[in-house]
Design a protein around this nucleic acid. Structure first.
Lengths: 122, 122
DNA sequence: CAGTATCCCCAAAGATACTG
DNA sequence: CAGTATCTTTGGGGATACTG
């Protein structure tokens, strides 16, 4: 592949634009199907602390991956959406996810074997 | 794309097989061109602490991404290499890197704008 | 050369309580 | 509903010193 030739070795520390938090890609994946509201995301993400979600969304908004639309109604309503850039990030998240699905078993097995050999009996 | 249809939403928390450390992808990228020794990696990675490199390599070995070959010579010599699985991870790292290169400017600009608006004057 | 052993630090993560 | 504020905890990261 030609990817190698275009990669700057000196930038190897800068492989990521942003240092994704634990929840970053999860949010991006959640927003695949379109607009979602705060608590809707929260519910679908199984036990993410409010603060973590809030921070993650703010970061994603700040970096241009997500739009935040607030309606001045009572009760308030805030919609989150992916931007075009966010959808590119989603593509990347998908590739990671597919990689994980393809190789989870292999990794788990490698880990099991390694651990079996690595034990130094007292 | 058809990726969406093959993604299990319930596994959204498991997008990554492993939680990559700060140095994981850097090591993988370094090993692109083939076998490397410990201090060789260290030198090429600009200031990575020995402990961090050691931990990162052990994790990668444990998960089956890297092979470790030790020679019982004096002085000792240890070779690190990517496995086939490791090379798949390298592909992923490349895509992340290319994404970063393509979009770094856009993200930096989005961030700049967001920060300019987010300031609440005292 | 290729690590391990310690110790320290800080940022991220999370639990809980409160509010416009 | 959609957050913020506060506090606590965890562990990843890093510096330094030592060793087979």
């Amino acid at each position: 592949m030609s990817a190698a030739t275009r990669l700057d070795p000196d930038l190897s520390q800068d492989i990521l634009v942003v240092r994704p938090s634990k929840w970053t890609l999860v949010v991006v994946v959640q927003l695949r199907s379109g607009t979602m509201r705060f608590n809707e995301l929260r519910r679908n993400m199984g036990g993410v602390p409010q603060k973590s979600l809030s921070q993650t969304l703010r970061e994603l908004e700040r970096d241009g991956f997500v739009t935040r639309t607030a309606y001045a109604t009572i009760p308030p309503r805030v919609d989150y959406d992916l931007t075009a850039l966010g959808r590119e990030l989603l593509d990347l998240a998908d590739q990671f996810h597919l990689f994980a699905q393809r190789n989870r078993e292999a990794v788990v097995e490698a880990r099991r074997q390694f651990d079996a050999l690595d034990i130094r009996p007292a």
